[in-house]
Design a protein around this nucleic acid. Structure first.
Lengths: 350, 350
DNA sequence: TAATATAGCTAACTCGTTTTAGCAAATCGT
DNA sequence: ACGATTTGCTAAAACGAGTTAGCTATATTA
């Protein structure tokens, strides 16, 4: 690489001081620069292809202009999250528009050497967006207490942590209500992940609530546990098939998990939706192309990232921490895996 | 946030100079520090929870210790790449071990404001890993000519650009050979993306070569084009079904695209593999859970990222640019979407 | 004992910016 | 015409580390 062009080079070439160069290029208000020198500086900067050194700028500004995006899940499973790229796209977009960059770092909770705190202490980032925290993540609580700019993408069991999320409980309720509306009364559930994660807990609660509100019994023996992977869905579905009386519908709180479940059904020659209705959650990019196309809850992943980044940047730029959480709407997507009410009647008639 | 602890604070607390603190904490060789002061510095640094400021360190070292990961695809389609998270995990792992961080940035080729070059000029990164370049990407050639440390994840039409990739041609050949081995003679192909991308071109070449080597005709009217999305696979497969004589097998150079194709087959009541054999490419995490489980070519995504990061860091640390490309092995994964040779005979007998 | 070497430390410079304080010349007001 | 203001610019300090050159006291050598 050739040597870099510095402000000093521009100053010398333009016959002015470094200070003037800085004033001109940053459009500093209140600093009177004649139109003549102003143009001269602009021209020579252009001619020398000058770009200010980000590191030096960070140094004096006391800001890195870098947002950290931390994925806080088991390393092997974090990547089962197929919405992650969309979230990152949302963040990148906003970051780019505001002159920020995005640092990506997986930091599992048990990791001793790498911690969220270190990212701040070493001043690698100005703020953090934390994806998928455990609901009892103590480090996050500590950092928040120390006023570190953090936006959660998810929720933890501690009040007043700014977060961008969907209403998992309500969305799950919507999903299960759809199944109930189709006439199902014996509905099993497979969770998306361990109940250590608030999203899992909330979706389970939504399931329960929908049942209870409809006057149906909540039966714990119909709840099975996934761990974000198709394999876990496969095994959970096998357990369901081992049940004495089959449920007529299953609510699976993750499309990725559902994929494994559908596979288990396929292998056992059980038709969807004719023999069993399946409702998913997440609306990963592939859901609509599955056989049968999966009915599910759409998560606005891009928007989740977009909002998180916007809140964080507002916090950093204006020093105002968000006063309330940002809860985005979900949409229920009806495809074919639940069957329609009409179809169901036809089937039962047969 | 409380004020940061600086080396100066540690120095004052330990009653030594800042220089000494630096010497001790960096284990500078040849600098004689008594065991006594050494411990004192270590202890107070620990007590004050001192972590050196990354920005200041970058400033004086002339290095950012940041690797850029640039995704060079159309923004809306980049995220159809479900292997991306795995690649990033591979990169992060290596980066972390060597004291580097990972900057993630989508930079589509047409983007005027954001360019790869700017990342270097502004010194945001020390080096770049570029994913999915177009085969005629001029900016990459220019940067390489200027000696910028860049590792391609993919290939472009220009010699001597260090790259980490799989042998797409050979892998495609392997895939098509499998279909030929099963007795298929009329095999269609759907590409993974536009032929602007070298991977698409290479996979098409592999398909052609396998046919020709087996003495089968290469028929251009059997080649259809995908664009990384399931939708494109859906449409391409519909075109195939409109053909007068159906092919008995289709090689689809992307599992994601194949997903849409499978959906089209499903909607037309065409059974896989009984009526048509389908071979994919990529082995995305979901392929083995599709109905039927998709036979495909496994890409070692994590390893791709791992190797790219290792090469880049070696380049940066030892100033030795890689002398040859890193081509990783692929593996053909036989599942159910092609049927077995035996099954096929049974079918034809019926 | 004087000259030299070594152990153990530190002052001061460097990196490339932004920003504060201030200086000289031109313009203004009366 | 003389002080006050404004215009147009710059010197120098700051950010927080790493690093070079050098200083002082003690130990070693001749």
């Amino acid at each position: 690489m050739n040597k870099r062009t510095t402000a000093k080079d521009v100053a010398e070439a333009a016959g002015v001081s470094r200070t003037t160069v800085s004033f001109v290029l940053n459009n500093v208000e209140g600093m009177r620069i004649s139109e003549e020198t102003r143009q001269k500086v602009l021209d020579t900067a252009e001619a020398l292809n000058y770009h200010p050194d980000a590191t030096a700028r960070s140094m004096v500004k006391g800001k890195t202009f870098i947002l950290g995006f931390v994925v806080r899940q088991e390393p092997d499973k974090a990547y089962a999250d197929l919405l992650l790229p969309e979230v990152m796209r949302g963040i990148s977009e906003v970051a780019g528009e505001h002159g920020y960059h995005l640092l990506f770092k997986p930091v599992p909770p048990e990791d001793e050497k790498n911690s969220l705190t270190t990212l701040f202490l070493e001043r690698q980032v100005d703020g953090l967006i934390v994806s998928g925290p455990l609901s009892n993540d103590q480090e996050i609580v500590d950092l928040m207490t120390a006023n570190a700019p953090i936006i959660l993408q998810g929720r933890i069991d501690y009040p007043n942590i700014p977060s961008v999320d969907i209403n998992n409980r309500k969305a799950a309720e919507k999903a299960v209500n759809h199944l109930i509306g189709l006439g199902h009364t014996r509905i099993a559930m497979i969770t998306n992940a361990s109940l250590q994660y608030s999203s899992s807990k909330d979706r389970l609660n939504g399931y329960r609530r929908a049942l209870v509100n409809a006057g149906l019994p909540y039966d714990e023996s119909l709840v099975f546990y996934g761990n974000r992977t198709p394999d876990s869905g496969f095994h959970a579905m096998k357990q369901i098939l081992d049940l004495g009386i089959h449920p007529t519908a299953v609510f699976i709180a993750s499309d990725t998990v559902a994929l494994g479940s559908l596979n288990a059904l396929y292998q056992n020659f059980i038709r969807v939706p004719e023999d069993i209705a399946v409702m998913g959650f997440d609306d990963i990019p592939l859901s609509k192309h599955l056989a049968p196309p999966l009915s599910t809850i759409h998560i606005p992943a891009h928007s989740l990232g977009w909002n998180a980044a916007n809140l964080l940047i507002k916090w950093l730029d204006n020093n105002e921490s968000p006063q309330e959480d940002c809860i985005l709407d979900t949409e229920i997507i009806i495809r074919e895996s639940c069957g329609s009410y009409k179809k169901r009647e036809e089937n039962t008639r047969i």
